[in-house]
Amino acid sequence: MSLFTVEDLTCRHGLLTAVQGIGMSLERGEVLCIIGANGAGKTTLLRSLAGVHPAALGRISLSGRDITGHRAHERVRGGIAMSPEGRRLFYDLTVRENLVIAAENGRKGDWTPARVLEVFPQLGPLVDQEAGKLSGGQRQAVAIGRALVTNPDVILLDEVSLGLSPAAVEGVYAALAEIRSRRDMAMIVVEQDLNRALGFADTILCMAEGRAALQGPPGTFSRARITAAYFGMQDEETADA
């Protein structure tokens, strides 16, 4: 039995089907990167996994338990946490308050605000700073930390590098690599930067028009095929086949 299983998931925005027939299976310590062009359905998929957007069809299971109908806060208590697109911090609250409120509402475990400050030491001097006054990289660190302190089994990270400087992206991914090395949770990352995703993922899920255009370990696909899937085109290999 896998830690986290998604079967034939479909999500809609009104009449528009934004995600169709997506499936995945993850174990603790595993990283799945979701890639795809703008509008491919990546964020809708992640929001649906987090319980923020309802699933129209399909099934989501955590440790064998069907959680498809659970609301967002119930999924957090079950072991799924999300760092949303655009960070979406509580900007009038301090860094400390952002972390502590999340810790109070999540599960008990090894991830505490203090431990987050060890993984993101740049936040140390900023704990009493309002989140709205932080830089992009610092906000991303708080957003990831806020998800971590709920002690999830599955952490969902949306658009990790979007809008960050190259140095900030390096810092965030260094921290993610450290978190991953502990192998205490599965990680699903939505990432626009193709090179970054291919270098970090155990499995990639390339989405186009809401469907899985390509799915599997990144080493098993040629670069041309991934690029073609990314832009929703048919590549030569599959065309020939």
């Binding site: 319980g51 923020v52 957090v76 979406r88 509580f90 009038d92 308050e97 409120i101 999340a102 109070e104």
Partner: peptide, 19 residues
């Protein structure tokens, strides 16, 4: 704390476990 989080961003509050 929970209410102030909701005031700032209700969806984000839900995704960190606040009912």
């Amino acid at each position: 704390g929970e209410s102030q989080a909701i005031r700032d961003d209700e969806e984000a509050a839900g995704s960190i476990g606040i009912d």
